[in-house]
Design a binder for these strands. Structure first.
Lengths: 361, 361
DNA sequence: GGCATATAATGAAAGCTTTCAAGGACTGAC
DNA sequence: GTCAGTCCTTGAAAGCTTTCATTATATGCC
């Protein structure tokens, strides 16, 4: 592959001049400039990003660390980040942590030696990014956290308003007349899970509804986790009439469990998800869900990062994006009070009267 | 960040010795070796991949170029590749081409200057990778093509047996008694699209069925494309009784079109897809589809690449993985011959007699 | 103990770029 | 025509590693 030395020789100029032409780092008189450009064109020269990065102490890479490309929510974020990054001349180095903290550390450590311009991280379960990030920032590398935050995270972040989204979703379900709700949360260590649970609880509290702890189940953020925990909820005496799933993958799993248990949704049991994945509208029944702007989270994160690289040293930014309730057909009015004991639930007397499916939030 | 020079000073040895210890590139006597390792531990030294790559003329990166992370089939491939790569000490640099040939070229050109060990490419539409790849290979960088191949591709490749998969799917539909089939193919430029169409046609020919060209529509490999072309097919006089979608995303779009047109699937119209995405079992009705081992395609590609890097100079490998027909509920027996002209179709007289839904292939 | 040989350790060069100090060419004014 | 001051251009150093030729040390044998 051609290098600058060859270009310099071809154009009859010095190495430094070639560099100046390439980077516009100093004035170069037109004839020389032209000769250099011609040589560059002639051999299709492209500067070695490796050498350039080594010398500049910074590459045009942005490290992106995510739990799992295979979960459809994350690619949306990746895509958003990639689009902004690419448009600004940055490239994405993608790393899967597989939600494994050890793998996350390996990636973070090694990534650093590539001198990336910045880092976009969706922390894994149990992530304790703080130390790592501090060491990055000491080296002048910006770090932005997306979707969920590590304990005590005080750096830049982009998240959705999980609490509010969950609150609104729960309220919507309550307005349909349900009083015996359950939630299948994602992993409790994740701030997004926590916030969604908080929103759920706040809505219940405002209606003076209390549910036993067995109505809140924790699952991994995937179909299988949702399936298992839904099955468990369905087997309960005093089965919930509606389930709020911590994300759509969990909801999809729950749908499978319903089907297997011979329960119709929403006639026998209602379900609402979170994420509003592309495929929520394809399920049977189409899944109501809280829409979360994954793509925008990616673009926002990339934009913050690029601003930082370009010299923005302002205080940490905490961008919180709005969610929106997407109503489809998976939530209905509750069936008649089920026969059998309602052990474990203490439904208050003030439940709002059931009414037909609302068309708006 | 610590560098080798500091390690050398701390351990009281020369730069070269540190390098030899780190790379086991020469024998170093135990006491020295130990001192070096201790120093490395003490400061948490990690070698600069940038400098190492520059010197070695090769980094531990594998460039992975895909059309779009957002299409759920590709992440499976990425994940497969990542797992094998990571386990062997390689990292993935992910690039989206957005199916844009120009963007593909930009990525390919720049990627090269990072001196990756290899390249895994899922070519974009209109990709003419051949020139680029030749230049990579001249530089000793292995290139593996996955899923679809550029024109005249003669390098390593990993694909699914698209022709056979499509043939079997079509045969299955035919056995349900359908005689007026349509296909919504993916982009015609893509070899996987072409092969699926060939399989479709072969199955029809074997049954001496002929369909007019208007029964083969081309769409982009996404929901929207499938929706539009399905709508078009539904409006035809002599509407097909079954549609074979070039992939599941197209099938999902078709499902949306059915719903909008008030048609029940499979009672009014049958549908079968290709890819067997995770979510095919979630749709209404659950989608029958040809399963394609995306994850394995990724692992196979990464494995070939790593073998090449390690010195395998054998002839080009063409791995073709088996597909499997996944039968769910979206294909039924055709409704009674529809009223209205059957303009444009010339159904032969030898259609196999309808029978109830088959449970096996 | 001394010499030849095998084994360890070292220092410097190279890989490709950017950057900085310094030198060269040119302009304008007197 | 000279001198000061600009403006361009240059060459060398630096960034961090690997590798090779070289020197230093250890081993074995007589």
């Amino acid at each position: 592959m051609a290098n600058m030395k060859q270009i310099a020789k071809m154009a009859g100029v010095s190495l430094g001049t070639v560099s100046h032409v390439l980077n516009s780092s100093a004035r170069v008189r037109e004839p020389l400039r032209k000769r250099v450009m011609e040589a560059v064109e002639a051999v299709g020269y492209q500067p070695s990003q490796l050498a350039r990065g080594l010398r500049r102490d910074k590459t045009n890479m942005i490290g992106m660390v995510i739990p799992d490309v295979t979960n459809p929510f994350f690619p949306a974020v990746v895509r958003g980040a990639e689009d902004i990054a690419f448009a600004n001349g940055y490239r994405l180095m993608l790393c899967n942590t597989d939600n494994d903290h050890a793998k996350e550390i390996v990636h973070l450590n090694e990534l650093r030696t590539y001198l990336p311009s910045g880092l976009i991280v969706i922390p894994s379960n149990f992530s304790d990014l703080t130390a790592q990030a501090a060491s990055y920032r000491k080296a002048g590398t910006a770090v932005v956290c997306v979707d969920r935050l590590p304990r005590d995270w005080n750096g830049d972040s982009v998240t959705a308003d999980n609490e509010k989204g969950a609150y609104e979703a729960t309220n919507y379900v309550l307005r349909q007349g349900h009083t015996r709700l359950a939630m299948i949360t994602g992993p409790r260590h994740l701030t997004n899970s926590q916030n969604r649970l908080e929103g759920f609880k706040r809505a219940l509290q405002e209606k003076h509804l209390h549910i036993g702890p067995e109505y809140v189940q924790e699952a991994s953020f995937d179909k299988h986790g949702g399936y298992l925990k839904a099955l468990m909820l369905l087997r309960m005496i005093g089965r919930p009439t509606a389930i709020f799933a911590g994300n759509d993958m969990i909801a999809f799993g729950a749908l499978l469990a319903f089907r297997e248990a011979g329960l119709r949704c929403p006639e026998d049991i209602s379900l609402i998800g979170f994420d509003n994945l592309d495929l929520a509208e394809m399920t049977s029944p189409p899944l109501s869900s809280v829409s979360q702007p994954g793509y925008q989270m990616g673009t926002a994160a990339a934009q913050i990062l690029i601003d930082r690289v370009r010299g923005d040293h302002g205080p940490a930014k905490h961008i919180v994006l709005e969610t929106a309730l997407k109503i489809r057909d998976s939530v209905g009015v509750p069936a008649e009070e089920q026969q059998g004991a309602v052990r474990g639930t203490r439904t208050s007397g003030v439940a709002t009267p059931p009414r037909r499916r609302a068309s708006t939030v």
